[in-house]
Nucleic acid binder design. Structure first.
Lengths: 248, 248
DNA sequence: TGGCGAAATTGACTTGCGTCAAGGAGGCGT
DNA sequence: ACGCCTCCTTGACGCAAGTCAATTTCGCCA
């Protein structure tokens, strides 16, 4: 009771060590369904890295693949460059999601991954992870599932959708993912600029802007810079042509 | 030396039982890198199914996911239906390739898979396969790799490419895959009608036809219905904008 | 051999989205 | 408070690819 609560040691004592076991994201991330013992084994190989400042790169194309990354906080973007040097956004990653999966096959990172705002990641050294996965069937299963899940996401992007379908689908996808994470699915903040959204959806920035304006006029959404409110989910689903949902 | 080689029993005796161990595709398929003992364990769970006639379905969307399928011979197509009932081709599968990977996550097939011509598959019961994968690290690794490989393939389809880029990329992709399988990479037969190619590339059938005609006029290829000859790989690579290759 | 239907090609027209260009609105450092 | 820069929005115009429609070719079966 004597030492003031502001002393360094006191703070250190009160700080709960971040582990998979007490991580709020464990139900979205790799350790889904693991019991406490297995989670602790997983925990030992996880490298909880320093938070990255906005616009800092986590990895770059061509670097030797050594680890998968799980988002702990913030929002990340993965992208490639085409031969003309133009950026091509492949995905946005929210907390609990796994990044770098496309690097497993070639053994070399296939995309640049950058923090859109300040964000933290857990690095999962791949060799250790796959070794552990042979020992914990539930873990192997979860990695299979996460890889398979990404296939469906990419398949959507590959479809031939109109600009309206793409933008509506994008908003609904984010809405679903925020809900899963316990955030509001009706009002959220876009971590990425319009340019990145457009690039991800393979549209021009101007087209995204126009569609958003149109949705706003139709009373489907309300926006204020990067703040978005979804006012009419049914209407958005109609615009998205119902083609978003992965049948689960 | 006495019995004539044409007698039925003789044929039966000379027929080698099809196993993973003696399968010509083992270096492209799931058992990559397994030693003979492990291959025999894998072999025991493989269900070598009757050849399917052309246009027969292997599985349909919504069916409970129970097995992955490896192509043994022929060419398969996987596709979905959008809400308007239009077909959307997701992939063509050549011998040695694994199908149904996108069903792992939801536990329900996410695409219809149909034989384009008469073709054979090996069914790999998923529960048995993943159990075996925990016991054979090299097998687990290979499944990770195959899943990861598909991610890159889907990423290409998701890019915003012109019609010329798409058609050139498609031809070169087939060329590479045929070469891997020991076939000519300069002359091959398209197992699928133009309509399916167009659908896969998210183009109109007419557009594919026009691009093919243009390539032919430019001396890049020669076609005779479904027979294709690639005359100028460099030229095609240029049209494809070099954006096909996965950096391996 | 001839006739039917599916597949492929080609031409004429339409359109959704990209490109170009200009203007407005915050954010931030000095 | 000012200026600068980046982000976003809006309008005018052009083009690549889609749609519609007609014709040819091939495979197939009677």
């Amino acid at each position: 009771m004597a030492s003031p609560p502001t002393s360094l040691s006191s703070v250190a004592h009160r700080t709960i060590r971040r582990t998979c076991v007490n991580c709020a994201l464990s139900e979205l991330c790799v350790p889904v369904g693991l019991d406490q013992t297995d989670m602790e084994r997983l925990d030992q190989l996880v490298d909880r890295q320093q938070p990255l400042p906005a616009n800092a790169h986590l990895c770059r194309i061509g670097e030797r693949f050594s680890a998968l990354y799980a988002v702990r906080s913030g929002c990340f973007k993965s992208y490639r460059m085409d031969r003309e040097g133009r950026e091509r956004v492949l995905a946005f990653h929210l907390p609990g999601e796994l990044m770098g999966l496309d690097a497993i096959y070639p053994g070399v990172y296939q995309s640049n991954i950058v923090a859109l705002d300040v964000g933290g990641v857990c690095a999962l050294p791949y060799n250790d992870l796959s070794r552990l996965a042979t020992q914990i069937p539930r873990l192997q299963e979860q990695i299979f599932r996460l890889l398979s899940k990404d296939l469906s996401a990419y398949a959507w992007l590959g479809g031939d959708h109109s600009a309206e379908e793409r933008v509506a689908g994008f908003l609904l996808d984010l809405s679903n993912r925020y809900r899963e994470r316990g955030y509001s699915d009706r009002a959220f903040n876009l971590a990425m600029p319009r340019r990145d959204i457009a690039n991800y959806l393979r549209l021009a920035t101007e087209t995204v802007s126009r569609v958003i304006t149109r949705f706003e006029r139709q009373g489907l959404i309300r926006t204020e810079r990067r703040e978005v409110q979804l006012l009419d989910l049914d209407g958005l689903n109609e615009r998205a042509n119902h083609c978003l949902q992965v049948t689960v």
